[in-house]
């Protein structure tokens, strides 16, 4: 249990909490102010849908992938593979709507002109190459130090 748990919150914390609640209240009032324009219930549906995608699909998929990797890839290589995959998440997710919308802008807007599929492949290639180089560097360093990386027994599931 945290040492601070159970302590009476300070005035500053209470004031901050009140400020947070006031901001939420203001935001909600703005949302419901013009229901025909802001469509608050549609907004709520979309918010729940966004969370279902993230907490119901993306994160469980990442955890499942981590579990598979932890059981199939040796420790030292696993370290770099996991790192590379984490680094690749951002560019992959951001590129999906770009790929989907490519070519749908008005001429002259200079919008979505690039081939984002190819660009994503290039970026993933660069991240993969960087990851492999770091891994090889680690292997060489381990060999030089005459202390190979520890290959753990596959006893526990982990990410």
């Amino acid at each position: 249990m945290s040492a601070a748990q159970g302590e009476r919150p300070s005035l500053t914390r209470l004031a901050l909490g009140a400020l947070g609640l006031a901001a939420i209240g203001y935001g909600v009032s703005l949302l419901f102010e013009k229901p025909k324009v802001n469509r608050p219930f549609e907004v709520i549906k979309w918010a729940i849908g966004s969370d279902i995608v993230v907490d119901g699909i993306l994160i469980p998929a990442a955890i499942a992938l981590g579990w598979v990797i932890s059981r199939t890839v040796p420790g030292r290589a696993r370290r770099y593979l996991q790192g590379g995959l984490i680094a690749a998440v951002g560019v992959t997710l951001v590129s999906l709507p770009l790929i989907h919308r490519r070519g749908k802008a008005q001429p002259g807007q200079a919008l979505l002109l690039q081939n984002y599929q190819v660009n994503l492949a290039v970026l993933l290639g660069v991240i993969a190459a960087g990851t492999v180089l770091l891994y090889l560097w680690r292997v060489v360093r381990d060999m030089r130090e005459d202390a190979p990386g520890v290959e753990p027994p596959k006893s526990r599931p982990g990410r």
């Binding site: 901050l16 400020l19 947070g20 609640l21 006031a22 935001g27 949302l31």
Partner: peptide
Amino acid sequence: ALAYIVIGSLVLHI
């Protein structure tokens, strides 16, 4: 409107 809800709930969470 969402910006206020996000920042307000973040401040409350913190």
